[in-house]
Amino acid sequence: MKKHKVTQVRHLTDSTFVIRFERNGMEFQTGQFVLLGTKGAVDRREYSIYSGENDDYLEVLVREVDGGKVSSKLKKLKAGDLVDVDGPFGFFKFDPQSFQVQQFLFIATGTGISPFHGFVKTHPQLNYKMIHGVRKVEEAYDHDDFNKERVTLCTSGEKGGDFDGRVTEFLKTETIDENTNCFLCGNSEMIYEVFDILSEKGIPTSNIYTEVYF
């Protein structure tokens, strides 16, 4: 566990923010996560790395959880504060060169967009499509960092996205090439449903990669 200095906290909505901190030489592969907590705190939580492999800083995307022991403390951080960071960990690693067919579909709900933000920042020329499910339009976290042509925003709580409804409803209407490599990140209910939908559409389970947010 190492101490890293916070250099920026960027609030995206009332409850969601990006913490940027010094990288201090940490090597990672995009898709991995770190354990993060405020300096000296007993509790820490897992957060996917939001920044790219080539950035000289580390970023994580955090949503404040009601009554959360960690996220509420992280929200109060400001530049100059220290955080405890351990890692990287995890197996949701992404290297497009390791795939025969480099055609990718990313499906996220909420802050599950975080690893995909890292994927795209690391590999800007990627051939991908992304479906992002949120409740409100304001939760389209940093969509400017993605190619708008490739992203579908599904909003279930209000109109104004590209699709009014849940990710799963949108997905059912889509045709997906069976060679597509599908990456899923978000809550377990979404992942269960999407897993079934993709299987029904003929995507082999070996082409489905999941990272469940708990």
Binding site: F91, S188, I191, Y192, F195, T205, T210, V212, F214
Partner: peptide, 11 residues
């Protein structure tokens, strides 16, 4: 069950 394994984060 695959879904339980996912929820267990068994990888």
């Amino acid at each position: 069950d695959d879904k339980v394994l996912m929820r267990m984060n068994r990888k």
